[in-house]
Amino acid sequence: MAKEQTDRTTLDLFSDERRPGRPKTNPLSRDEQLRINKRNQLKRDKVRGLKRVELKLNADAVEALNMLAEARNISRSELIEDILLSQLAALKD
């Protein structure tokens, strides 16, 4: 069987061909890069005294938080932290 340039069904014939696209700039796989970046982010957060907290909210609450955060020009995380701290301060009084 002859090799046809437009034939892509026989992938083994084209395994050594260079495909167009962005050149690889990092020797690590994408999974490894993500793992390293996440580890570095957690280290930065730890230095800043931040701890990770996860919660699930319904879509309406998230949309309301997004709109309020955008109006105040802060991140949603900062807004949630402000709300929690103000509620905790109110409970102390």
Rank of each mutant, 00 (worst) to 15 (best):
N66S: 13
L88W: 02
M67D: 14
A89M: 05
L11N: 11
L65E: 06
D93R: 11
K56M: 13
R18I: 14
M1Y: 13
S77A: 15
K46V: 06
N73S: 09
N40T: 04
D31M: 02
K51H: 07
N26P: 01
T10W: 02
P20F: 13
D93W: 00
L79N: 03
N73R: 09
S77D: 03
A2V: 14
L13T: 01
E78C: 05
K43Q: 09
T9R: 10
A61P: 04
G49R: 00
L85K: 08
R18A: 14
Q33R: 06
R19E: 09
R22Q: 10
L50V: 06
L28E: 00
P20G: 10
T25Y: 05
M1S: 14
K38R: 08
A71D: 12
L55P: 00
S29P: 02
G49M: 05
K3V: 15
A71Q: 14
L13W: 09
N26R: 02
L34Q: 10
Q33A: 02
L11C: 06
L68G: 06
A69S: 08
N58P: 12
R19F: 11
N66C: 09
S29Y: 03
L84Y: 04
M1H: 12
A71K: 13
L84W: 02
E63T: 07
D82Q: 08
R30P: 07
I83L: 11
V53E: 05
L57T: 05
L68T: 11
L28V: 00
R39H: 05
A71I: 02
E54N: 09
A2L: 15
D7H: 03
P23W: 11
R35E: 14
T25F: 07
S29H: 02
E54G: 10
E81R: 09
R76F: 07
N73Q: 11
E4P: 01
M67N: 08
L57E: 01
L91Q: 08
N66V: 03
L50I: 11
I83H: 01
K46N: 07
E4V: 13
G21I: 14
R48D: 05
